[in-house]
Amino acid sequence: MQTTRLPGGQLKFHALAEYLRRSIDAGTWVVGSKLPTERELAEATGYSINTVRRAVEELVAEGLLEVRQGAGMFVLLKPRSQNREASVGVLLPDLRLYFPKVLEGIKDTLEAADISLVLSTYQYDPGRESEALEQLIRSGVDGLLLVPSEARGRAAGERIASLRKLGKPVVLIERRFEELGSGDPTEFVCSHHTAGAFDAVQHLHALGHTRIALCLREHSRTGLPIRLGYEEAMGILGLDASVVVTATWDEWGPAKAAEVLDTFHQQGVTAALVFGDREAAILEAAALRRGMAVPGELAFVSYDDESAESAPIPLTAVAPSKYRMGRLAAELLLTRLREGNEAPVHQIFLKPRIVIRESCGAENGAGV
């Protein structure tokens, strides 16, 4: 069969293999993830099935991909560049909201230090999490930046023991073992969500609000520290902290928003701290449909600042320092790799800032 060449004499399957390498390097497909089928790749790239198959065979031979009979093609590991002194494994729950900015900070720091990165995600599935972590270890990384699933009670001690058995330096991101208090031995960088919520309440009070509600997404690990910050601030201000609404991700919709607005009206609420941006936007839209003035009759501060700016009336938001968190976690791990046990254990909290927009009634564009 005649082989078709691209301009410059490059074989088509070599060009496709290089494209797939770059996509994996960029995080399009991470360690442990499944690639599209050969037919889907052919349709997406315009190459023939035979060209796709030869490109896949090349990457399998390099140890980058693994073909599992009846299951498909999976990313096995990212080869370490010969010019790299070390590599760092990064385990994230997913690459949707929140963590892409954290990953950007990690990448910038490691690239500046000429350290390669091996990325894996587990989609909040504990089974996939264990497999993804094992794959990172097998890939030969020198240290780990982890956002593991939650572990409380007895599971916390088991998790700490398992991290020690890895035999690699570990820095946790947005995770810690708070139940252990000062006994938590891990190194971490976390957002101080309690302080973020505290500042949001203080901000709304400074604007003249005394009836301030809290809305939370149920079953979220961030909800508890936000509630603690809300209650602490309301207590210091001598305000009633009883108007707290919780609902699951699926329950937050127009019907729930209407119910919440009815509660606000009955309780005389004039402002609300809402976790997260999606829920705040749903509530704001419901208020506008009722003809309510935002922020005149009801002011909002959302929590996360992922999509707050795109709300009909841009939302003032508590914004965790995601990019800076990624940079700092990577810097701590690099220090640990250089200095070993001579380096102190760092347990760092980053206080979120408040990004002022139109929904709270303060001067637009300011920051707290």
Rank of each mutant, 00 (worst) to 15 (best):
T316Q: 06
E331R: 15
S359D: 00
L315C: 03
S310L: 11
T45P: 08
R176G: 01
A258H: 15
Q266D: 15
G105V: 12
G361T: 04
G183P: 01
A285K: 14
R175S: 02
G208V: 05
G340V: 01
E62Q: 14
A272E: 06
E131M: 10
F275V: 03
C190A: 06
I212R: 03
E231D: 04
F74D: 07
G63L: 13
A26T: 10
L146S: 07
P295M: 05
A280F: 09
A317W: 13
G361W: 02
R217N: 03
R338D: 05
L333F: 07
A213Y: 12
G196W: 02
F99L: 15
R289D: 14
L59I: 14
G181V: 07
A44P: 09
G296C: 01
F188N: 00
K322Q: 08
P312C: 00
L180S: 02
G268R: 14
V118K: 08
R68F: 03
G238A: 02
I226V: 07
S87I: 10
G223Q: 03
G223S: 08
R22M: 10
V201S: 11
A362M: 04
E40M: 13
Q123R: 07
I212G: 03
H193Y: 00
G367M: 15
L288E: 02
G365P: 05
T263N: 12
E85D: 04
R138Q: 10
V355C: 10
L333K: 06
E57W: 11
L144D: 01
E231F: 00
R54F: 12
S307P: 06
D108P: 06
A55H: 12
A299Q: 04
H265K: 15
H346E: 13
R39G: 09
L334Q: 14
K168Q: 09
T37N: 07
G208F: 02
F74C: 03
G229V: 00
K256H: 13
D305R: 04
A112F: 09
E129P: 01
G27T: 05
Q202V: 14
E178W: 03
L76G: 13
A156K: 00
S220P: 02
K101F: 11
G70V: 14
V274M: 08
A272C: 15
L288C: 00
A151G: 00
E158I: 03
D114V: 08
G9L: 02
R227K: 01
A206R: 15
H192W: 08
V102T: 10
A113D: 11
V88W: 08
E66Y: 07
F74T: 07
R289P: 05
E178H: 06
E259N: 14
I115C: 09
A286H: 13
I354E: 07
I115V: 15
C190T: 04
R338L: 01
A233W: 02
I160L: 00
D277I: 04
A257F: 12
L103P: 04
V355F: 08
G223N: 00
G46K: 09
K256W: 04
I106M: 15
A286W: 06
Y98G: 06
W249K: 12
G143M: 11
L145I: 12
V201N: 05
E178I: 03
L35R: 13
A271Q: 08
G196V: 05
A257N: 12
R80V: 09
T263P: 09
E279M: 02
R164C: 01
D240P: 04
E179P: 05
Q10Y: 06
G229D: 00
L91A: 10
R278W: 09
L207H: 10
P126H: 01
R96M: 10
R164T: 04
